[in-house]
Amino acid sequence: MSTNSGRAGGAQAAAPAAAGLRGLRHAVSGFLVWREASVILVAVLLILYFELTNANFLTNANIVTVSQFVAAPAIIACGEIMLLICKEIDLSAGQTFALAPFLVYFGAKFGLPVIPAILVALLICASIGLSIGLITVLLDVPSFVTTLGAFFLITGITLTISRGFPATPPGGHVLAGILGAFGYSEIIWAFLIVFGTHVLLRHTRWGLHTSATGGNELAAAEAGINVKRIKVGNFILVAVLAGFTGIIEAYRVGSNDPLAGGANMMFFGVASGVIGGTALTGGSGTIIGGLIGAIVLGVLQDGFTLQGINAFLFDGIIGAAILIAMIVNIRLALWQRGTVR
C-alpha cells in the first residue's frame, strides 16, 4: 500500500505540462476504475443521442419497450458470461430458450400445475446443459462443436413436439403477469438474476474458480480446483437461465413460438457480454457490464426503430453499431489499464 502513495507522489513531482495531462487522466481514470465504466459511458452517450434526436425516447411507454428489448439478452448474457469466463460458449442457448415454454405447455397438458410444470421444464433444461457439459469436458470436444450440434438437435425437438405451431402458455392472469405479462416484470426478473449472478461471480468460490479455470486451466487444476466440474456447472447455469428466459418471454408475448430465440437471442446475449467487457479469451468478465451491454443493444434497437430506419437496413445498422460500441469499449478499457498512451 505504501508504494502506491509513493507513486502518486512521483506523479506530483513531474513537469507541469505532463502533470496536467496526468491530472486529466487521473480524473478520468478515477471514474474508470470500475471495469464497467467505459461501457456505461457508451450507454449514456447513446441514450443522450436518441433523446436529443427523438422526443419520445425517454417516455414511460418507450422505457417499457426498451426494458423488454433489454431483459432477455441480459439474462442470457449472465449465463454466457460465466461460460465465456471459463473459456467455453453455448451456441444453443437460444434453442433452449425456444424449447422451454413448450416443455411447460406439455407439462401442464399432462396435468401438472403450472409452477411444477415450470420447475420440471427447468430441470429438463438443466439436464440439457449437463449433457452438453459432460460431452464437452469428458470427450474433450470444443464447446463450439458440441453446442453447434445441440443447436440443431434442440431445434428439431422443439419443432417436433410443437409440430411447428405456436401455443398459448398455461396459467392465470396473475401468474402470467408476475412472469412477464406486466410491463416491467421481465426487466425485474433480469435485475434479480443479474444481481444474483454478480454475487455468484464476485463473492463466491464458484465464481472465483470459474475465473481461475478460464484464466489458466492448468494452474487452477494444480491448485486443486475441479475444472471439469466448474465448466459443467456453468453449462447447466446457461441452459437453465436460457430456458427461464424463454418461459418469461412467452408469458410476456402471450404465445409460445417454436421459432423464438434462436441464434439471434444467443448472439445478443454473447454480444452484451462482450460489449460489457468480457474477454473471449477467458479469465475475465463482468456481469454488470453484461447488463449494460444489453442496455446498449436495447437502446440501439429501440432508438433506430423510433427513427424509422428502413427495415432492410436495420440489421446492417445494428451490426455496425455493435461493432463501433465494442471497439470503443475495448479501446477505452485498454486505455484505462494503461496499456495505450
Binding site: 472465483l208 481461475a212 478460464g214 489458466n216 487452477a220 491448485a223 480446483i225 477467458g282
Partner: peptide, 13 residues
C-alpha cells in the same frame, strides 16, 4: 492465474 489479483492467487482454492 494471470487474470486474478495477487491475493486471489494466494488463496486459490
Amino acid at each position: 492465474v494471470n487474470t486474478l489479483s495477487v491475493y486471489h492467487n494466494m488463496f486459490l482454492n
